[in-house]
Design a protein around this nucleic acid. Structure first.
Lengths: 339, 339
DNA sequence: CTGAAAGCGCTTACAG
DNA sequence: CTGAAAGCGCTTACAG
């Protein structure tokens, strides 16, 4: 099926020169007489010549490609981050190799194996759910790795982070200011560091306000609507349910909102709910969701740029932190009297 | 930064054999004595050897990689499809090169150029918004191409389609059955064939029911919530607004629902709204959205499998069509009396 | 400015 | 079963 493609030698023959000269001309070397170069370019163009990245990278020992490792590309957070990475990669002429692990360890191993064979120049891991296994495998490759929203400093591993604790504290504080006293935290059992940090921010806000921490108000979800719904259901089964809930992310909040509604509660009148991420749908929920905006694309971009800097051998801070932004919408209201 | 990696020659030296034998052993050739093979495998393992895909593909003329071209990976429809492709690619040991054009022609050109340099074995285009430019560029490569939800039969171009017209007809018919007589179609000006076909199904359903087609009830959106909101707003400005609207997709419906609400309408009591796709959030909208489910992952899988079949030189139907599935939820109700 | 030569890391006929 | 040789398509010192 694949038709034989023109090589540098074919062009050389047509241009009556050597393939070395063709290579130089096409790469824009100024070691070639302009007239020769022009002729070569024309012939290359006419014959639809495109250099082989494989051959080139064999000699340069650079592939100009990066591996992007996601837990699931269908998670809107990861998709946005990948978009930012791709934007930057496109500008730099880098290709993106996408590896979706689906959180499956065996698949992780296979994915890393493929990236290794392809000799990617670097890797960005967009998920905070980095298996320890994963990181060990990746580190073995001894190429720069940039983690998104997860930490693991070492010579080869850098991080781009959102200020989780600060943002979580801020949004919890917002609920407190609105008059809430019983505030739940609906986490993500797979959220690792992100979850821990957001939880920390929540606790800190309670603390600062002199509110007691109630373990029964902390329930883990799974980072998705299903988990949010289930967790909300547990919360509502409590003798003394909360009047507000801080969700690990918007997906969790989406499920929590629906579950509250199913139980006949009005959001926000009966129950205030806040999220984290500010995904595309969050301004379209009913009511629109109050949340923390993560600059997802910018973070993706930053990750790619960090990788590029590392590849150039430039010094880079081992971890870069960007701030979250509180987005006030309509899913928060003061608690009803007497609750 | 990149440390020198072990090559086949290094392994050969350590194993006191030739690199040819190492190559054979590692590829599992039965031309190698088992004892030798075992020793080689052990040494390769110990030295962390991983074959170079670049070197291999230089000689085999196969890259075991496919290019995936999306309009935007942040569109949940495309993300789901990519997931299906990736699932299948993973099983076959293929790598995915992701190219996001963001609908920008210049970027399309660059993206295709990169895929060409990398000598991908095939390409799947997940977006129905295929620029004519794109397809011309891609076809030049003379490698198999599979289009998702868009048609363009030729020797190298195959398609995986949803039965747009049928599904659209069915969901429109559902609205008619519920008693609606003034039904709008809220399209996607960038939707190309998908939009045309869904519109056709809508018209056909009206026709069959003997309902007049009213051009003023057809308004194009942009396939996203913003466009859905704007279009709904125009619809509501009509002297005689519709009582139901068929949206090009769920994203459009999301915007339309919010806009209806902003205008003080209750969905579905005052306005029935249906979508297309059944994205992850559609069961979480309020009210949950009645829509047509596309088996997105399965379609992605099918696209990849078609590509693989083409690469094997096997015969394949130029276009494969999968059915949509009507998902009844709560965004549809009979029209209010007297409207 | 230009060309011949070496080499990147593999696979695979060919000869034994 | 094994090895030497050729070659995939490039880049880049080296010599002119």
């Amino acid at each position: 099926m694949a038709v034989k493609r023109a090589s540098i030698k074919d062009i050389a023959r047509l241009a009556k020169t050597s393939h070395s000269t063709v290579s130089r001309a096409l790469r824009g070397s100024d070691l070639v007489k302009e007239a020769t170069a022009a002729k070569i370019r024309r012939i290359a163009e006419e014959s639809g010549y495109t250099a082989s990245a494989a051959a080139r990278s064999l000699v340069t020992q650079r592939s100009n490609s990066v591996g992007v490792v996601v837990t699931s590309i269908t998670d809107p957070f990861e998709a946005e981050v990948v978009r930012g990475i791709e934007d930057s990669a496109d500008e730099q002429g880098f290709s993106l190799l996408l590896a979706d692990s689906n959180g499956d360890p065996e698949r992780e191993v296979r994915a890393v194996g493929l990236l290794e064979e392809r000799r990617v120049d670097g890797i960005v891991v967009t998920s905070s759910r980095v298996g320890a296994l994963y990181l060990r495998l990746l580190s073995r490759m001894r190429i720069p790795i940039v983690l998104l929203n997860s930490h693991h400093p070492s010579e080869f591993v850098h991080s781009v982070m959102i200020a989780n604790a600060e943002a979580s504290m801020e949004i919890t504080h917002h609920l407190i200011q609105m008059g809430h006293r019983r505030i739940a935290y609906l986490g993500d059992r797979f959220g690792d560091q992100s979850d821990t940090e957001r939880f920390t921010g929540y606790r800190r806000a309670l603390n600062e306000a002199g509110l007691a921490f109630e373990p029964e108000l902390v329930i883990p979800g799974d980072g998705r609507p299903e988990g949010g719904a289930t967790a909300m259901s547990s919360l509502l089964a409590l003798d003394h349910p909360p009047t507000a809930v801080v969700c690990y992310n918007d997906l969790t909040a989406l499920g929590a909102m629906r579950e509250a509604r199913v139980h006949g509660l009005d959001v926000p009148a009966d129950m205030s709910i806040v999220g984290f991420d500010d995904l595309f749908f969050s301004e379209y929920t009913r009511p629109p969701l109050t949340t923390v905006r993560q600059p997802m694309r910018r973070m993706g971009r930053l990750a790619m740029e960090t990788l590029l800097r590392l590849l150039r051998g430039a010094a880079t801070a081992p971890t870069m932190e960007v701030p979250g932004e509180l987005i006030l919408r309509e899913s928060v209201a003061p608690p009803r009297k007497g609750r």
